[in-house]
Amino acid sequence: MNISLELMLFYFTSFFTLINPLGVMPIFMTMTDSLDEATKRATAKKSTLVAFILLVFFALTGQILFRFFGITVDSLKIVGGVIFFYLGQDMLQARLAKTKVKDSEVKSYTNDISITPLAIPMICGPGAITNAIVLMEETSTFAQQVLLILSIVLVSFVVYIILRNSSKLYRFLGETGNNVLMRLMGLIVMVIAIEFIISGLKPIIRDIFMLN
């Protein structure tokens, strides 16, 4: 029982750290600034649901898909790192544009941002996808696989709660506090981006030198 709890805690903390919902929150607040509360909640729900489905999908089929398409985790890290870097740069300068949406375009707009960039790559990013694939590959029993899926369910729920209540936190922090939070998270996102790029490039460069 204790081993199961420890394993569950390990799975949960690894996903929570890689997803970093506090880093997603400023982007969510910025992109949904002109929407009403009900639409914000619906957007948070859809984005976390899409991210959850994708994480479970990659956990169950990731290795098969990667082999079929000839995709490597290293390539995924590099692409994700580039995306994160540019996003973090905008966050660092607190210049993410607050989009004004017409009433007739609210539905299509929320559908768009729910999937990208919120679900992909902010919540279900290369780090979380890689984590799901690697952890599932390392499981040796069906019980461990169930614990892994349950941890994805739990962390997705926590992300949803944070995004759903982001407006309350925004009002508590105010515009200045939100800008400070966004700059801080932007710096963290850029550091994570560099780590992704470097960790993705290392084995590729190593293979090049080995071939030579």
Rank of each mutant, 00 (worst) to 15 (best):
G80I: 12
A97I: 06
S14H: 08
T17H: 08
G80S: 07
F16Q: 01
V101N: 10
R67P: 00
F16T: 09
F28E: 01
Y11T: 01
K46M: 04
L7S: 08
K77P: 02
L18D: 09
T48Q: 10
F58L: 05
K100A: 12
K102M: 10
F28K: 02
V73G: 11
L60V: 05
M91S: 06
V106L: 06
M29I: 10
L92C: 07
S104V: 02
K45E: 07
Q93H: 15
G23V: 07
T30F: 03
Q89M: 12
F10P: 06
G70H: 11
S104L: 06
R95E: 13
L55I: 13
K45H: 06
L9Y: 07
T99I: 14
I53C: 05
L7T: 14
A44I: 04
I64N: 04
V50P: 04
F85L: 14
L96G: 06
S104W: 02
G23D: 11
M25C: 08
D33I: 03
T99C: 00
I78D: 11
T72I: 06
I19L: 05
F16K: 03
Y86T: 12
I78Y: 11
M91Y: 01
G88F: 01
T61E: 02
L60E: 10
T32V: 04
F16C: 04
L76S: 07
T61K: 01
V82Y: 06
V56C: 04
S14L: 13
I53D: 00
R95S: 15
V106P: 02
D33R: 14
V24T: 13
M29D: 10
I53L: 09
L5V: 07
K98P: 07
F10D: 15
M91R: 04
I71V: 15
D74K: 10
F69P: 00
K40F: 05
P21M: 11
F69E: 03
L7N: 04
F84L: 15
P26A: 08
T17Y: 13
K102Y: 10
F15Y: 14
Q63A: 12
T39I: 14
F57N: 00
L18P: 04
F69S: 02
P26F: 07
G70Y: 11
A94R: 09
D36P: 13
Q93T: 14
A42W: 12
F68N: 02
N20R: 03
L9M: 13
M25P: 06
F66E: 08
M91F: 02
I19V: 14
T13V: 10
S34E: 13
F10T: 15
A59P: 03
V106I: 15
F15P: 12
M8C: 02
Q93L: 14
A38D: 15
L9A: 15
S104R: 05
F15Q: 09
T48C: 14
L96W: 10
L87P: 01
N20G: 01
F12G: 05
K77L: 14
S14D: 10
